[in-house]
């Protein structure tokens, strides 16, 4: 195996995911299959090749620093309507400070 269940558990924690023992066994197996397949990239000599992040040249266009979207009560309400828990104009979360 290229990766152990403990390593996959550690990855899951980093990704803010959790898995049952059974899921973890299956996922470790899938990691192994997929990483083994991906290893074929190693057949290619790429030392002098530049990486491509975007296929089409992308600049970072700038715009004037002005407010384009003035907040209003209706919009705020529409956004907060999707909150799983809210209090007045705030999102509500479990206590984070002891």
């Amino acid at each position: 195996m290229r990766i152990t269940p403990d390593e996959v558990r550690q990855i899951a924690t980093l990704a803010r995911l959790s898995f049952t023992e059974e899921e973890l066994t299956e996922l470790t197996q899938h990691f192994d299959t997929i990483l083994t397949y991906v290893d074929k990239l190693g057949e290619l000599q790429t030392d002098s090749v530049e990486p491509t992040a975007h296929a089409v040249a992308v600049s970072a266009p700038l715009r004037d620093d002005v407010v384009t979207n003035t907040p209003n009560a209706a919009q705020t309400d529409a956004l907060l309507a999707n909150a799983p828990s809210r209090k007045t104009h705030f999102f509500r979360v479990p206590k984070i400070i002891e």
């Binding site: 790429t46 990486p51 992040a53």
Partner: peptide, 8 residues
Amino acid sequence: KAQKVRTL
């Protein structure tokens, strides 16, 4: 590595 192969 994958991004370099993307270039190729």
